[in-house]
Design a binder for these strands. Structure first.
Length: 940
DNA sequence: ATCCTCCCCTAC
DNA sequence: TAAGGTAGGGGAGGAT
């Protein structure tokens, strides 16, 4: 259940601070000495992509004429200026905000705000826009909204009424209202009429409301009302939101950070780092109280229950038996009773006819009475009969959290919670602290530690690492050992690629027959697949989690539509190819359920978890292997590939151009091998390669790509043996073409395999060969295999050859970078004769080397930077992230220390860092946050 | 030794 | 009446 803290929002800062920043923003605009007019007062724009006039020019116009320019789209951005529509699917954008830059120009020319509607990029809109409703009764706008679209509350606040064509909207004025509306609450008007009622919780009073999962509307109904669902999705959603802000942000500065720096500089040197900790206390309650100031200072709880008398005498299902369920629950979860709140819930929560609705968030005044988040309302009312309950406001939570993130983003995009480094008294400071205050320590772990005689951080500080590892396991022990000393040196990671996707419902599951159950499974499969597609991934493993009524449990639960005491069953299935096809997933899910063979009426909870996720485009590439084999058969009919084509067509997209031939620090070391090469053989591959190389040049990390012939990976039976089982079997099934790949000339020199004896494809001899078994694909010395090889050798002389190695090389080149570590390994062989990048930076010697490098060179040579980049690149591939971070930290420090005025060095460092982030993102799926940074006022 | 799978625990 | 979700980390234990 929920912990005491709050619902996941305890890190999210104050709403009123956010509000203040809006005012400050307006104030800042008003006080601009260069200001020429107030034309755009109250209007803010965000420029998306390339526009005419340019973003810079638009920024200048807005500044000079009283408007606001947002460096990234914010929830209250009035208009988004763009030339083309972005991929709206990605982020559910509000299209009614996208207008052409010409609007700004025309406003300026006419010296007034002209109607923006003719400038909308997306014109296929319903006649009624979601609109701002300043207390207007709904029927006031009947003339324009015969609307079948309900104006969603959340969007309405950000929209501007544009229904009256004749009227030039006084946008500035409206926006002032808008700000006010956001600052107070969208529910103000409702609450005023209700404020006399003690308890304001409302439930869906729609009599047609779906009651169980047998109703097709139940799923969406449930998600709409589930606090836990909202907490989870808001969390993930905001992670993505911050990522987007970070991506959009690019190299722009942080508008408000300058102010902060200015303030800081007046006191000290300004190079110190600041950590802002934002704590959103009682988040749900605080948001709920925006519209109910009269309730401030009272014990308040956010819950679905109406509270009051209604919550002490709830109807109980005739087949429910609270006492029996309580006893069974207590018996089954005895070992969980180290969690005091949970124990108390069981002990006194099931009493009489008390409400079993859970409290999502409660005010300090309520906490003082012993009320906790997650507690049943009935139980809470026993502790505090005067407790007031208020309803959820999910849209409000979202809105406030957006405001918060937007506000913070004006200062930094390194938004992540972390423990402080040791600044001296940290040990003493932490010693008396309760262990469950540390991240990752919950009721279970602290209980375990208590049993080991460890009650607080001080106790753990005195314990050996070995003992902690014994008690908790290796990793958890190590973490606690560090954390209780205030140390957490893990690199901060964000933008991590998702590893699982799931959708679960353990409420309202009541089926009378399998048709109802299967219909729900289809719906849930659909839901989870949508989430999968949304994140552009595909799944290989489908897991079905089923909660089944425990044999001893009463047929109906004490909690209305709850799951009661259950047994949990997990069933999983591996899919041949990663998929995001709803039909495939649904079929698997239905099969798993049939296998589980549970009577539908005994089901109480169902969840679908998709794991072993793969990147959708990587999966596409995997399929290309098969296509490639297919193409090879077509090529039988084509002309032979002239040998000259084999030599390698260098495709360059160089950034580290060698115009400056500075001697390299590392020149006496063996030359690193060039990592890539491109061969053009298949038209299709060449086409898709184009986009890959474009990508690289955009990133600015492309290198001239040439590779000697000897580096072309060969494809042989080992490769095939290592391909994923399913693909391999398919290959076997299509033995006609693949046999040739599976076998190669055994006389090849081990030293220069590709050069001296390139693996050759002989398309014509394959047809005579017998079907292959899987074992045939392993390196074989069997007589039959030798005979076949001999036969092929004889034919080589007269046949046209197709080089499988080229095709594979081409395929590898065509793959996006991030699949290389995984798939490249499968396909290519390490080539031994070419020197590897020397491991200059491994071990401890890197410090000396970097020290010498930075001390000796006034400016770093591109070659050295390039070599350095290769070294760190390898560390990333080899999963030596900790070491890589150490190396980077050291380099940064040395540069700050010895080259504080040399922006060449600063740029070089930043270039390296950018490269690392790119590579991290593509290989690991997330970025790193480097604690150490270049402290230069000139170039930072 | 290393990987995989099935959980449990924790955070939000 | 009531809306008891979602994702990641990692330990235990078995397979290889």
């Amino acid at each position: 259940m929920t912990r005491d803290e709050d619902n996941g929002f305890s890190e999210w800062g104050g709403y009123f601070e956010a509000k203040k920043s809006k005012l400050e923003e307006q104030f800042a605009a008003a006080s601009d000495p260069f200001r020429k007019s107030d034309l755009f007062e109250g209007i803010s724009i965000f420029v998306n992509g390339r526009t005419d006039p340019s973003a810079d020019e638009l920024k200048r116009i807005m500044m000079v004429h009283g408007g606001t320019f947002h460096h990234y789209e914010r929830s209250h951005t009035t208009y988004i200026i763009a030339s083309v529509l972005p991929d709206v699917k990605v982020r559910n954008m509000n299209l009614s905000k996208f207008i052409s830059a010409k609007w700004v120009v025309d406003c300026l020319e006419k010296k007034k705000i002209v109607d923006y509607k003719p400038y909308l990029l997306y014109t296929n809109q319903k006649t009624s826009q979601p609109r701002l409703m300043f207390g207007k009764p709904k029927d006031n706008d009947a003339n324009d909204s015969k609307s079948d679209v309900e104006p969603p509350k959340d969007k309405a606040e950000m929209e501007v009424d544009s229904t009256n064509d004749e009227t030039q909207m006084e946008l500035g004025g409206i926006l002032k209202h808008l700000h006010q509306a956001v600052a107070t609450s969208p529910e103000k008007e409702d609450s005023a009429s209700e404020s006399k009622i003690t308890n304001l919780s409302t439930t869906s009073n729609n009599s047609t409301t779906a009651r169980t999962a047998a109703d097709p509307n139940f799923l969406s109904e449930f998600y709409k009302n589930s606090r836990l669902h909202h907490i989870a999705t808001l969390g993930t959603g905001f992670k993505q939101y911050v990522c987007r802000l970070r991506q959009k942000h690019g190299t722009q500065g942080f508008p408000n950070r300058e102010t902060l720096k200015y303030l800081a500089n007046s006191q000290q040197n300004g190079l110190a780092r600041y950590v802002m900790h934002i704590d959103m206390d009682c988040f749900f309650v605080s948001v709920g109280l925006r519209a109910r100031p009269e309730l401030r200072g009272l014990p308040i709880a956010v819950t679905h229950s109406k509270g009051g008398n209604a919550a002490t005498d709830v109807p109980v299902h005739p087949q429910a038996d609270r006492k029996a369920e309580l006893e069974l629950f207590a018996q089954r979860f005895e070992h969980h009773f180290h969690d005091g709140d949970k124990a108390e819930k069981v002990r006194s929560g099931f009493d009489k006819k008390m409400s079993l609705s859970e409290i999502a968030s409660c005010s300090y005044e309520a906490r003082e009475k012993g009320i906790r988040n997650g507690m049943f309302v009935g139980q809470a009312l026993k502790l505090c009969p005067e407790l007031k309950t208020i309803p959820y406001d999910f849209e409000g939570y979202k809105e406030v959290a957006f405001t918060l993130y937007d506000t913070v983003a004006q200062y930094t995009l390194n938004i992540e919670a972390f423990l402080l480094d040791s600044k001296n008294d940290i040990l003493a400071y932490l010693a008396p602290m309760s262990l469950d205050l540390l991240p990752g320590v919950g009721s279970s772990m602290s209980h375990k530690l208590k049993q080991a005689g460890l009650n607080n951080c001080g106790d753990v500080q005195k314990t050996t690492l070995w003992r902690l590892e014994r008690v908790l396991g290796k990793k958890l022990g190590q973490n606690l050992f560090q954390n209780c000393r205030g140390i957490d040196d893990r690199p901060l990671a964000y933008e991590q690629a998702r590893k699982t996707v799931s959708a679960e419902m353990n409420f309202g599951i009541r089926f009378t027959n399998s048709a109802e159950c299967e219909q729900f499974l289809c719906q849930l499969s659909d839901e989870v697949t949508k989430r999968l597609v949304e994140i552009k991934r595909k799944a290989r493993s489908v897991n079905l989690k089923i909660m089944v009524r425990a044999a001893e449990a009463p047929v109906e639960t004490s909690k209305y539509m709850g799951h009661g005491v259950c047994d949990t069953i997990n069933k999983s299935s591996l899919i041949k190819h990663a998929t995001d096809d709803v039909n495939v997933i649904t079929t698997v899910v239905l099969n798993l359920m049939r296998e589980a063979d549970i009577p539908p009426h005994e089901l109480r909870g169902i969840g679908i978890h998709l794991t072993r996720l793969e990147d959708a485009s990587a999966v596409r590439k995997e399929n290309i292997i098969k296509q490639m084999f297919g193409k090879m058969s077509e090529m039988k009919k084509d002309k032979p590939i002239p040998q000259e084509a084999v030599g390698g067509i260098a495709v360059s997209g160089a950034v580290g151009d060698d115009k400056v031939k500075k001697p390299s620090m590392f020149e006496n070391k063996p030359k690193p091998r060039e990592p890539r090469n491109v061969f053009s053989m298949l038209t299709a591959a060449a086409v898709s390669r184009k986009s890959v190389t474009e990508d690289r040049s955009q990133r600015g990390t492309a290198k001239p790509i040439t590779r000697p012939l000897s580096l072309v990976p060969k494809l042989d039976e080992d490769v095939l043996a290592q391909l994923p089982e399913d693909i391999r079997l398919e290959v076997i099934a299509n033995k006609e073409e693949h046999l040739c790949i599976a076998e190669y000339d055994g006389n090849r020199s081990p030293q220069y395999p590709a050069l001296q004896s390139p693996p050759l494809l002989n398309p014509s001899d394959s047809t005579n060969l017998s079907p292959l078994k899987a074992t045939d694909l392993k390196p074989s010395t069997s007589r039959a295999a030798v005979a076949r090889l001999q036969k092929r050798k004889e034919r080589k002389e007269q046949e046209h050859y197709i080089r499988s190695d080229h095709i594979v090389a081409d395929y590898i080149e065509d793959m996006p970078d991030f699949v290389h570590p995984h798939i490249l390994k499968l396909i290519s062989h390490p080539v031994t004769e070419v020197p590897e990048v020397p491991e200059l930076l491994m071990g401890d010697k890197y410090k000396d080397l970097l020290n010498t490098w930075v001390s000796r060179e006034e400016a770093p040579s591109p070659n050295d930077v390039d070599l350095f980049v290769k070294q760190v690149s390898r560390m990333i591939r080899n999963d030596q992230l900790d070491h890589m971070c150490d190396v980077m930290k050291y380099l940064c420090r040395i540069i700050n220390m010895k080259r504080s005025c040399s922006c060449c060095w600063h740029m070089a460092y930043k270039h390296i860092e950018e490269f690392i982030q790119e590579q991290m993102l593509t290989i690991e799926g997330y970025n790193l946050l480097f604690i150490e940074y270049i402290r230069c006022r000139k170039c930072s």
